[in-house]
């Protein structure tokens, strides 16, 4: 079966430093891929290259047969099909939760207001925030803001969703509510790529885990394989450190 997303030989350099040194992988529909690795290894950059929020220096990306990286590509239309959840949420400060979620459908997808509102309320319910529809971002906790931002991505009916360290900016007690939403999405068959440090999540939800270090993919494979019998010594070392730090991989 053809992959939904195909990432081929992505390179990215910032000044003297090459942050991505030729990264390639493929993603099937309904798959959940989790990318782990030390900070600063280009994981976030890789994600941003997929929808060209950051332009790769070299390499190509295909989404469902369409070349994203082509100069002729209609990037706005492509981005509308890819959901993106940011580490610092980036909810639109001047809009209520409801407005945040229906802005995309109305202004990008051209939906009528009634339709978009109904859709937005549905997605807010899906992430458990129906009662916060009229709240502004400043009135919401971090976890709530992130869930609204997931609803915002979902409202676009994307082919896949990219999560860039979605819980890294959250207080520990708020992480759970966001992970819950993400686990549910994975169960429902959403195609996802998640960059995270949450090993429990990775272990229990990922179909495949990619371990990146210093701009390259060191190892990739299903969670059972990576966690119990990693092929590469650096993978083992990283996992050991993470386990020490975060005390085990409770799911």
């Amino acid at each position: 079966m053809n992959p939904l997303l195909s990432v081929e030989d992505i390179h990215k350099r910032y000044g003297k430093e090459e942050v991505l040194k030729g990264v390639s992988f493929q993603l099937r529909k309904g798959e959940t891929k989790v990318i782990i690795g030390p900070s600063g290894t280009g994981k976030s950059t890789l994600l941003r290259c997929i929808n060209r929020l950051t332009e790769p220096d070299r390499g190509r990306v295909w989404l469902d047969g369409v070349e994203v990286t082509s100069p002729k590509a209609n990037i706005n239309r492509i981005r509308a099909q890819i959901g993106f959840v940011f580490q610092d949420f980036n909810l639109f400060t001047h809009l209520t939760a409801l407005d945040n979620v229906r802005l995309g459908p109305m202004r990008v997808l051209g939906m009528r207001k009634e339709e978009a509102t109904a859709l937005a309320l549905e997605e807010l319910a899906r992430v458990g925030l129906s009662d916060k529809a009229n709240s502004y971002p400043a009135q919401l906790s971090g976890g709530q803001q992130q869930r609204v931002s997931i609803a915002r991505a979902l409202a676009m009916n994307p082919k896949l969703i990219l999560f860039d360290e979605p819980t890294s900016a959250l207080d520990p007690e708020l992480i759970g509510e966001v992970l819950e939403v993400m686990i549910q999405l994975a169960k429902e068959g959403m195609t996802m790529i998640v960059v995270t440090h949450e090993m429990g999540f990775a272990r229990s939800v990922a179909d495949e885990i990619i371990f990146m270090e210093k701009g390259v993919i060191v190892e990739q494979g299903p969670p059972e394989q990576l966690f119990s019998a990693p092929k590469h010594p650096r993978t083992a070392e990283f996992l050991r450190k993470i386990t020490e730090l975060y005390g085990g991989t409770e799911g």
């Binding site: 929020l53 706005n76 981005r79 890819i82 980036n90 909810l91 990008v108 931002s149 915002r152 676009m156």
Partner: peptide
């Protein structure tokens, strides 16, 4: 804010 708006496809 701008990045998020572009990410939506605007």
């Amino acid at each position: 804010q701008m990045v998020a708006a572009r990410a939506l496809g605007m």
